[in-house]
Design a protein around this nucleic acid. Structure first.
Lengths: 347, 347
DNA sequence: ATATCCCGTGGGAACGATGCCATGGCGCTT
DNA sequence: AAGCGCCATGGCATCGTTCCCACGGGATAT
């Protein structure tokens, strides 16, 4: 349905430029520039006069012209995988706030998990001469590409270019170890791991944490219990249904991120299994729904807002000092024990 | 915790410009421009040669210089209230995808519900010479300000400047009416409305829908049952606790957005009230958690992704034809009946 | 043969802001 | 009185791209 309304002609007036301000204040463009930016000399009286003239005209300096001249903008690029996932949305929110604090505008690209889109976004950022880029990478290519163009990059959450690129990640290994240890303490031995993949960065570390906890309790990873279930709810949902229908199903599941956790959780509900009576569930990444469902889901919580803010902070430092050593910050995580984990049921 | 790693010097090589491409291809800058943009003549052989030279150099046209010359960029600004709210995150995701399809980059500002931040973002967008702006406004000021600067604006979700600015909203009145009617059909008469405010745009329309449904059933709005509970979970949570502790508490609550619904939902759980046995709950805006909790929450679902996409589409049309009549599109909503609504308990 | 057209190309002036450099005035020292 | 330094300002080139204009050469029309 569409409602038509009478048009109002937009005032397409030419935007005032520094020249207009200069004429109005009776000084040269150079003086206006110095007066407004605060760089260089300007008599107090003149500065005030220029300020007034600018305000009266509604003058807004053209960021394009400034960037062109200075060869670097006050924008930072942010590339995330999927804004619909609360993790990335919160990351972006944290980055946005921190960017604003530092006077940066945020150019955001949601790649919808596509590598093409990732490269496309990186190119757009090069074209925009962004001061730096924050990315939750899916491959090393973005960091490499931007590095070649001399643009500072901070990899967040996942890290492919450790050593040559700054990073901000969370204690994946520790978190996964604690989550698994928590289940082991409750007596569980058959603990399934639902994970996107186990070879790179975040996935690898979470797998390692899981593995270490098992080893510490005298157990070992049972390959049949490790499920690489892709990146979407549907995938993990299906795989969880398959696994939990088996007679020798696991007594506990550790889902390595919030998406996989949702799939598993839906499967458990669908099969009518009791939680934690029949199966315990623990997740990595504490999504909002986890504390609302009943029983609430035990989860490894990361301070995602801080993760985004820390990335901007790191990026800012890198922009100020381009040639320092590359640094990876590791943020802590916290195991939130809730109702979804309980003692291992008697066989 | 921080891990230091050896530095890798960034290749701070000067970025190739159109001049470099011109020299490499043995033509003038004008020809390179024509060959790459496709505007104006260029012999096939030359075009191909220029393309190769550009590719070999890794040339990326400077968007700043281009924008400066053309006086308008290929970026759209998006201003949302709070990315941590799934509604806005999804809206942004829809806008992002639609923007990318049309070759725009998206500059995003999360205002964290602050009007200052809103104006700040608008100024930044003027400075960036964005092609247009999409905003979930909290006051008419952003649209007015951008309008004065000749920047097309689309108001989405809420609309303050109807008549002078394009808008994309959902059927708030219809949705609220259906939700309320659903409760009335179940026999409820004391239906509380939790709402942020009732005077403007979205809040007003939802209130009207609620009111209309009551009137249609021969009832009327009881002021004591209408709670303006602010914009956060804590507020509605407290107000819900207060109201539901009363002996003459309502038998049903209609929460006019997902945040208020969360507050009410938490209050209901905290008081140990059965849903829908003691109290029914229906929400406007179907947040992810609503279909996961038990009982699942009946909600008026809006296609938020489409809302964002439609806003970009509208904006794009406005950019192409700046002087047409201003248009407001209204997207449909759908009542998702779930377990949280049931027959009115006997007194 | 000359005029007219079109194709293809290069020259160069913008776009708006910045920042180096030159200039001039004033006050102070020697 | 001349020299010096400092403050305050204006002139101007520059950033990288676009696009208007002019121009040359070949084909076609007269």
């Amino acid at each position: 349905m569409t409602v038509e309304r009478p048009a109002t002609p937009l005032s397409r007036a030419r935007r005032p430029t520094i020249k207009d301000v200069a004429e109005k204040a009776g000084v040269s463009r150079s003086t206006v520039s110095r007066a407004l930016t605060g760089r260089g000399y300007a008599a107090d009286e003149v500065r005030e006069r220029v300020r007034r003239a600018a305000a009266e005209l509604g003058y807004v300096p053209d960021a394009m012209a400034r960037t062109l001249k200075q060869q670097v903008s006050r924008s930072v690029g942010v590339i995330v995988s999927d804004l619909r996932n609360s993790f990335y949305a919160e990351l972006a929110a944290g980055a946005s706030a921190a960017a604003r604090e530092r006077g940066y505008t945020m150019v955001l690209a949601d790649t919808s998990l596509s590598t093409d889109a990732e490269i496309e976004a990186a190119e757009a950022f090069v074209a925009l001469r962004v001061a730096g880029v924050i990315v939750t990478p899916n491959s090393p290519s973005v960091s490499t590409y931007l590095g070649e163009h001399g643009i500072p990059v901070v990899e967040v959450d996942r890290q492919f270019a450790a050593g040559s690129t700054d990073g901000v990640v969370v204690g994946n290994r520790v978190g996964a170890r604690e989550a698994t240890a928590h289940l082991l303490e409750l007596g569980h031995r058959r603990i399934a791991l639902f994970i996107d993949e186990t070879n790179w960065t975040t996935g690898h570390e979470r797998y390692e944490g899981y593995s270490e906890a098992l080893a510490a309790s005298g157990g070992a990873v049972e390959p049949a219990l490790v499920v690489s279930s892709g990146w979407d709810v549907a995938g993990s949902h299906q795989r969880a249904l398959d696994m939990l229908r088996e007679p020798d199903r696991p007594t506990a599941v550790f889902a390595a991120n919030n998406v996989l956790a949702e799939g598993v959780w839906r499967a458990v509900a669908e099969l009518g299994l009791r939680v934690p009576g029949d199966v315990s569930l623990v997740a990595f990444d504490d999504a909002p729904w986890m504390s609302m469902v009943s029983p609430a889901v035990t989860a490894v919580a990361q301070d995602t807002l801080s993760l985004g803010a820390a990335a901007v902070r790191r990026l800012h430092e890198r922009i100020e000092r381009p040639d320092g050593e590359s640094v990876t910050s590791v943020l802590g995580v916290r195991l939130m024990v809730r109702g979804s984990t309980g003692p291992c049921p008697a066989p």
